[in-house]
Amino acid sequence: MIELYLFLVFMIIAAFVATEIKDLLAAVISLGAVGFSVAIMFILVQAPDLAIVQIVVEVVTIVIFVAVIFRTTHVDETIGKKLTSSHVLSIVLYAFFALIFFIAMVRALQELPAFGNATMKVASEYIRLGLPQTGGANLVADVILDFRALDTLGEATVLFTSVIGVIALMRSVGRKK
């Protein structure tokens, strides 16, 4: 348990560094530290499927970020500018909604079962019926590709849409000179 909290504190520090540092390359590396901490936390709570996905997605996104930074600019020019009135307004609004969210979160967290003692109303059925009904030994694959395959189809649609969006934004045909 204590190592999870250590990783949480480390992630919060790395996220602050990622938003506040002037060099974009260092910001991307801090972002990678956050992502790999999530992967290590998945391993610590025994979720190897999620850990593998987290690690490989993190590596590929960092490579894409670094490739883009090498082609454009290293310096984040938005940091260190003077505060204008609209900035102050947005900071005040952000603090207000953060407070509301924090109160709601504290009240919601009191309703949750203790860590490691989930209620498992649906999940126990999945665990019981996973191997006999689908024949797959990996329970995660059984759930995402058999019991809840429609959810996976929606996820695949999201990815498809994002690829279409990137290709449409970065196209060369029909672009104004």
Partner: peptide, 18 residues
């Protein structure tokens, strides 16, 4: 081996893309 061991289509696809 996605249906036998941890991993699956998503993780393997990202590794191949990598």
């Amino acid at each position: 081996h996605g249906h036998l061991t941890p991993g699956g289509g998503f993780a393997g696809g990202v590794i191949i893309a990598g």
